[in-house]
Amino acid sequence: MNISTGNQIRSAGILAVALVTALVVTSCATAPSNPAGSAEVRSKLDLLEAQPNMADLVPGEIREAEAAVTLAEQPVGKDIALGEYRVYMADRKVAIAAARASTLYAEAQRPLLSQARDEARLDARTREADKAHRKAEAAQSETEAAEATAAVAAADAAKNAQELQRQIDMLEAEATNRGLVLTLGDVLFATGKSNLNPGDTSSLDKLVVFLDQYPDRDVAIEGHTDDVGSADMNQVLSQHRADSVKSYLVQQGIRAQRISASGLGESQPVANNQTATGRQQNRRVEVIIENPPATMPTASTN
């Protein structure tokens, strides 16, 4: 009976210890599951470690993060604050490893970037040099072309000037500062008449040829007389004679707009009216072929 009582007591004691132990175990590790958030931090670390060369870049940081994550995964039972603390620490350690890795990666990229930039710069310089070279070549050929053009132009100009001089010589015109002055003598007209003598138009025909050749030159026709008769009569006569010359030129195909005709009467004698020769010289029609607007004389091709 005694023995049985002792056994009972002993077994009760063991039961109590077992109960308390169970309590201890329960209090520290009720749930076999990991603390909240530890799975997330583990997957962050896995993701980071999946990056190539990560372990080589930041081995120390990865080790620390690994240790912190492993600790965060330890069950903490009801001590939720401890679990949260460990998860927080692990999360920060993983983030630190990621940031340091990013720094080192950026630094490792730098030589490549510098190289790319140097290559781009070299390429740019090469292109610039090529462009300058091409430009110089273009300028050279442009200069040559311009020189050739200028030579041709000069030759043309010389030829034109020669031709003009030939025409002027043919016209027997006189170069003055008003232009070329062609004096038609009174032989063109019968005395006191203003209509042209039909047989003697050769000097006017030369003028027509000239005006055809140089269409940019306008023409002024001035009639003059000697002092015989009244001034009014002479003025009217000289106007009519100038008009007759104009009409002839227009008939020959010169545009009327190019021609002006005026009668100056006896106002501008070129010789002494006291002598017969002088009066004959004063009875005249002057055709002034005006200088062209441009300085360089240009010959039309037709």
Binding site: A12, G13, A16, V17, L19, V20, T21, L23, C28, G77
Partner: peptide, 22 residues
């Protein structure tokens, strides 16, 4: 009585264990 005393000792020891463990 003996049983009760044993239970009490066990509980105290267990409580101390908890405080040490956690």
């Amino acid at each position: 009585y003996r049983i009760r005393r044993h239970l009490a000792v066990g509980t105290v020891a267990g409580a101390m264990l908890i405080s040490v463990a956690c």
